[in-house]
Measured scan of single mutants.
Amino acid sequence: VEVSPDIYQQVRDELKRASVSQAVFARVAFNRTQGLLSEILRKEEDPRTASQSLLVNLRAMQNFLNLPEVERDRIYQ
């Protein structure tokens, strides 16, 4: 799965849209901590040159964001 270069903005938009914390998003989207998500968003590494471990996390976030909005909102509950 190709990771979109605007994945970082997509995540920020989703945090605002759903009014969820980084901690909640990190847990449900890719089963990691708020600290890691914060670092990923701060660095904004180009997905095309990202490490394998970062790509795994970015893909998981993208797959989560590809779910229908209704389903994502249900998962946040």
Rank of each mutant, 00 (worst) to 15 (best):
S51W: 02
Y8R: 02
A60N: 05
E2K: 15
K43G: 07
D73C: 04
Y8W: 04
S51P: 13
E44F: 01
A23Q: 13
Y76F: 05
I75L: 12
R32A: 13
M61E: 00
N31D: 06
S4F: 15
V56G: 14
Q77L: 12
R42V: 07
L55R: 10
A18Q: 06
E14V: 02
P5V: 09
R72A: 01
G35W: 13
Q10I: 09
E45K: 08
L41M: 15
S21M: 03
A60G: 10
S21I: 03
N57S: 11
S4G: 11
E69F: 07
D13H: 13
L65A: 01
S51L: 03
S51R: 09
V1G: 06
E69R: 07
T49L: 12
P47T: 13
A18G: 14
D73G: 04
Q10F: 13
A60W: 04
A23T: 12
F25G: 01
Q22M: 07
T49S: 13
A26F: 03
V1S: 04
R74A: 11
P68T: 07
L55Y: 11
K16E: 10
S4P: 08
R59S: 11
R72K: 08
L55G: 07
Q9R: 14
N31W: 02
V70S: 12
N57D: 11
L41R: 01
T33W: 04
F30P: 00
F64V: 04
E39C: 15
S38D: 09
T49P: 01
N57W: 07
T49V: 12
Y76I: 03
Q77V: 07
V11E: 00
D73H: 04
R32Y: 05
I40W: 02
D46H: 15
Q22Y: 14
S21G: 07
L58S: 01
R48P: 05
R32M: 10
M61I: 13
N63T: 10
E44G: 11
I75S: 12
K16G: 09
L41Q: 03
S4I: 13
A26N: 04
V1C: 06
R27W: 08
Q22K: 11
L65I: 09
D73R: 04
L15A: 04
L54H: 06
N57G: 06
L67S: 09
F30T: 04
A60Q: 11
R12V: 06
K16A: 14
L55W: 06
S19D: 15
A29L: 13
R17K: 05
E69M: 09
Y76C: 02
R32E: 12
A50E: 04
Q22G: 10
R12W: 15
R42Y: 12
L37P: 02
L15G: 00
R74S: 10
R17Q: 00
P47Q: 03
E69I: 08
F64A: 00
F25T: 01
S19R: 15
F64S: 00
T49Q: 12
V28F: 04
K16D: 14
Q10P: 01
E2W: 12
Q52L: 09
A60I: 08
R17F: 00
V20R: 01
S19V: 14
A18Y: 05
L41A: 02
K43T: 08
K43E: 09
E44Y: 02
D13S: 15
Y76R: 01
R48Y: 08
Q10Y: 09
R42H: 07
E44C: 09
L36M: 14
S51N: 11
V3N: 04
S51H: 12
R59P: 01
S38I: 09
R32L: 06
K16F: 13
Q52P: 13
A23I: 10
L65W: 00
E2L: 13
I40L: 10
Q34D: 14
L15C: 15
N63K: 13
P68E: 12
D13Q: 15
R74E: 08
P68N: 04
Y8N: 01
V70N: 08
Q9E: 15
E44K: 07
M61Y: 02
S53K: 13
L55H: 07
T33R: 09
V3M: 14
E45R: 06
L67K: 14
V28L: 09
L55P: 03
S21P: 07
D46I: 04
L58Y: 01
V1L: 06
K16R: 07
F25I: 01
E69W: 06
K16P: 00
L15M: 14
A60T: 10
D73F: 05
V56T: 13
T49H: 14
P5Y: 05
V24R: 03
D46E: 11
E14G: 01
V1I: 09
K16M: 08
Y76V: 00
A50H: 02
M61G: 00
Q62F: 04
N31C: 08
N31L: 06
G35T: 14
D73N: 08
Q77D: 11
A50L: 05
A60P: 05
V11K: 02
Q10S: 12
S38E: 12
L65Q: 02
N57C: 12
L67I: 11
L55V: 10
L65H: 01
R59N: 11
P68G: 09
L65F: 03
S21H: 08
A29K: 01
F64G: 00
E44I: 03
L58M: 05
E71F: 06
L55A: 09
T49F: 13
F64K: 02
N31A: 09
E45C: 09
L36W: 09
F25V: 00
L58K: 00
D13A: 15
E45V: 13
R17D: 00
L15P: 02
N31G: 10
V56W: 09
E2P: 13
R72Y: 01
G35Q: 15
Q9M: 10
S19G: 13
A26T: 04
Q77P: 04
Q9P: 05
D13G: 15
Q52N: 09
S53T: 13
V28A: 10
A26K: 03
R17H: 00
E45T: 10
R32H: 14
A23M: 08
V28S: 12
L36R: 15
L15Y: 02
P5G: 08
R17M: 00
Q52G: 13
L58C: 02
S53P: 11
A23L: 11
A26L: 04
Q62R: 12
N63Y: 10
R72W: 01
P47N: 02
Q9T: 14
V28D: 01
V3K: 04
P68M: 05
S38M: 09
E45P: 10
F25A: 02
Q62N: 08
E44D: 05
L37Q: 02
